[in-house]
Amino acid sequence: MDYIRHAQSRGRANFGWLDSRHSFSFGQYYDPAHMGLSALRVINDDRVRGGAGFDTHGHRDMEIISYVLEGALEHKDSTGNEFIIPAGDVQLMSAGSGIMHSEYNASRTDPVHFLQIWIQPNVRGVKPGYQQATIEQTGSLTELVTPDGRNGTLSIRQDAVLSRLALVPGEEIRLEVGSRNGYLHLLSGKIQVADQTFEGGDGIGLTRAEGLELTAIEAVQALWFDLPGQGA
């Protein structure tokens, strides 16, 4: 483990309507020790109260992934897309040459809980794009986002793969990185790695080839990022 980010040490922004935890530096939260890993730049753990959301704002040259954990998110953008993203769905907006969008809680009463993830693209100034899918879990590790959109996954403009990890108590898995980088973000449950335990909101980064051997203490849901190596 080359990098550890515990949930309780993340940055926080609480505006009443939004309670957000930042795994990496974002907005008014800045920590030079936590600037992202490889092309992974942002993981914001956002909870938005009913009827509230992010007003129309712009992005460019960023791959922005939303993964909804509870509730539903309403998306509108300047290219005419209007969609509801329910819990379990994954959405990818490629900002490209520039796009305006808004994100609101689809409910007037119930909160929505989702992750906002930013990955830097390997091409700039291209046409914006929008993708969304429901991807069922098949085995312990299921791909959600890939460079080529294989097997019904969403296609990202970067040499990166985002997978969902699901383990039952007692299950073991080894995650390999080789010459690349890896980042594991736990959504729920508890795992053991060597003599340490990690739970929901915690993150583990790898920048060397030894891999990561983990055992589920409780039922686990997590996101695993396979990212370009240094100099890629």
Rank of each mutant, 00 (worst) to 15 (best):
L69I: 14
N122I: 10
S66N: 08
G88F: 01
Q91C: 06
H101D: 10
G96R: 00
A87Q: 01
S94W: 01
H101K: 12
G139Q: 02
S94N: 06
R124M: 14
L73A: 03
H57Y: 14
S38V: 06
E103W: 05
N122Q: 05
V126S: 11
L69F: 08
L115D: 00
G53E: 01
G125N: 13
G98P: 13
E143A: 12
N44S: 12
D46Y: 08
P86S: 15
F114M: 04
M62P: 07
E136Y: 10
Q120R: 11
H57I: 14
G139C: 02
H59R: 13
P86M: 03
L40F: 09
V123N: 10
V42R: 02
I99H: 06
V68N: 05
H101V: 03
A52T: 11
S78K: 14
V48D: 01
Q120M: 15
H101I: 01
E136K: 06
A87H: 01
F83H: 09
R47E: 11
L92G: 06
D46M: 04
T109F: 08
I117Y: 10
R124E: 07
S107Q: 07
E143M: 07
G139A: 01
T134E: 12
Y67C: 02
G53F: 01
S102D: 07
Y130Q: 11
D46R: 04
Q120A: 15
V48P: 03
E136A: 05
N44A: 06
Y104E: 07
L141S: 08
T56N: 15
L141P: 05
V90T: 14
A133E: 00
Q131W: 00
V42M: 05
N105P: 05
R124N: 12
M62Y: 13
E103M: 13
H75N: 11
V42F: 04
Q91I: 10
G139T: 02
I85L: 10
V112M: 13
T134A: 06
T138Y: 15
S94T: 05
I119T: 13
M93W: 14
H113V: 01
R108D: 14
Q116S: 15
K127C: 15
